[in-house]
């Protein structure tokens, strides 16, 4: 299991059942968004065609963080990788919605739904 730590965010990733699972704990601002991007890149480069992001402990996301999600979604579509987020808190969800990201990224309310989407 990999883990990258910035002052405000802790991000871990592991591959379970051929699914690249990322879990974010804390705030994604301009500096920690770089760690998130690295994590995505690893996921996209890995053999697994499924990326699952656990956002249950994501407390804040800045526009730079949103940019990371936005740009990686495109890469995933190009490489035919399924990409899903789950368990966003209301505030984070509203930020995604405001930008229209909910129309670009699969966002599920819990892990079960997310896994159904990935395995479906």
């Amino acid at each position: 299991m990999n883990s990258s730590v910035s002052t405000k965010m802790n991000i871990t990733s592991q591959i379970i059942n051929d699914i690249y699972q990322i879990s974010i704990d804390g705030e994604i601002d301009a500096s920690s968004s770089i760690l998130l991007d690295e994590e995505f890149e690893k996921g996209i480069a890995s053999s697994s065609k499924k990326i699952l992001v656990d956002c249950s402990h994501l407390s804040y996301i800045s526009s730079a963080g949103l940019g990371v999600f936005m740009s990686n979604v495109e890469d995933c579509q190009d490489k035919d990788i399924k990409f899903v987020l789950y368990n966003l808190n209301i505030k984070i969800k509203s930020v995604f919605d405001m930008l229209g990201l909910n129309h670009l990224i699969q966002i599920k309310s819990n892990k079960e739904e997310a896994l159904i989407y990935l395995n479906g």
Binding site: D37, G67, V68, M70, M98
Partner: peptide
């Protein structure tokens, strides 16, 4: 702006 902006940047 699609032409100008970097991949991770956007404008609302």
């Amino acid at each position: 702006m699609n032409e100008c902006l970097e991949k991770k940047n956007f404008i609302t």
